[in-house]
Amino acid sequence: MVNLVIVSHSARLAEGVKELAGSMIDGDVTIIAVGGIAEGDDYRLGTDPMRIHAALEEVWSEAGVLLLVDLGSAVLSATLALDFLTPEQRATCLISNAPLVEGAVIAALEAGLGHSLEEVNQAAEATAQFEKIPRSLNSY
């Protein structure tokens, strides 16, 4: 199964997305939330490439890992984390272009169905076009 790593500037947001996406899983999918920069017992806003790297090491499998990220430097941090992996691990990890919440929810479902990393990512990224209020259908 493809596993997921949720990366957010906010520790609480990452955990919340993990909780929501976790409710969609029917299968043996692992989701790890990585949010914020550790500061004492708490977290401040930011992304930590080393913790993302540790999460990738923890959930890596041959089926692959999809990273879902929030904004801005989360991408830079995730990219750097990937560069700390071995080439073999790196080959089956992907940073998704999907919106964080919609992407994580759909990715969790797709991963649980046993789909491939590419399929999971495609479904997650397709949520960017998802209309919350469809204009194509008759309204009430």
Binding site: A123, T127, F130, P134, L137, N138
Partner: peptide, 24 residues
């Protein structure tokens, strides 16, 4: 297919397509 809305016919194995038929 959402008959009430006369929606497009969508793939029931795709969550994205299913949500687009906006069934109330």
């Amino acid at each position: 297919q959402n008959l009430t809305r006369t929606s497009p016919v969508v793939n029931a194995k795709s969550i994205l397509q299913l949500m687009q038929i906006q069934a109330r």
